[in-house]
Design a protein around this nucleic acid. Sequence first.
DNA 1: GCTGAAAAGCATCGCCT
DNA 2: AGGCGATGCTTTTCAGC
Lengths: 157, 157
Amino acid sequence: MQTDPDFSLDEVDRQILAELQQDGRMTNVELARRVGLSAPPCLRRVRRLEEEGIIRGYHAELDPVALGYEITFFALVGLESQKEAVLSAFEGMVREWPEVRECHMIRGGGDFLLRLVARDTAHENALTSRLTAAPEVARVQTLQTIRTAKDAAGVPV
Amino acid sequence: MQTDPDFSLDEVDRQILAELQQDGRMTNVELARRVGLSAPPCLRRVRRLEEEGIIRGYHAELDPVALGYEITFFALVGLESQKEAVLSAFEGMVREWPEVRECHMIRGGGDFLLRLVARDTAHENALTSRLTAAPEVARVQTLQTIRTAKDAAGVPV
DNA sequence: GCTGAAAAGCATCGCCT
DNA sequence: AGGCGATGCTTTTCAGC
């Protein structure tokens, strides 16, 4: 399950990855047909890509609004300190918040960029307050999404 | 394929969504076992969730590094104008850039938050330059990701 | 809306090239 | 490495509750 830097992907592997990124539930028979292989070697390649960790998993993409999350927003959070213990503690905290979907440490010292979901503006405000009130948090700037022109999970293949 | 606001999800539906968000290739038999149904009604529910647009699709999650994308970064882009034609033109442009994975318009006027991937720092600099040089772009602030503590696609279920 | 059986299709294995 | 054929599951439909 570890990415092997010595492992090289050929053109067929890349085609397989592109197809499965677009439709993760495609049957192996259909996938094999598209990449021009018979089913067994195609399945062997998929299994190898999974074992190498190049395919990390398969996920259904759900509609946030249908699940009650009307709002997606981002937060730029600055901490009081750049000590590793403080940074790790903050990361550990937001990892436990289900509404925090992503947490990226930003170059420049003690800053994080978070992506969050909220049911409504009251929920969003509550989350922002909880962030502001959290230990070692110096400042919180929220970036509210008005509309999303592109939202492609994954990477170009 | 449209989300119906009148459509309500019961507890079993939510369980199905949670399971498929976590493992999108789970067999219907296994899914049915986990939610306490036999296979046919479970499959009918999944089909309905797909038709309602609550399940938008299924995707393999790929390792960006294995595909040659070492860097994920964000860019805050400010435009010269808030005219709708200018905003749409910018969105149309970045939609065509494969390295731009997300483009969100931010409340406050003429700003966008982009998530991008790059093969290396040279590629990242080239992308930033292309953004800066694009029509109607007033300013670009890049937020480079040092490390990612959490990266959960999807929503809490 | 669920169950259970049955047909068709798929995943997967061993062996061969 | 890829392909062929066989086997056991899975999916999917359909009748009946």
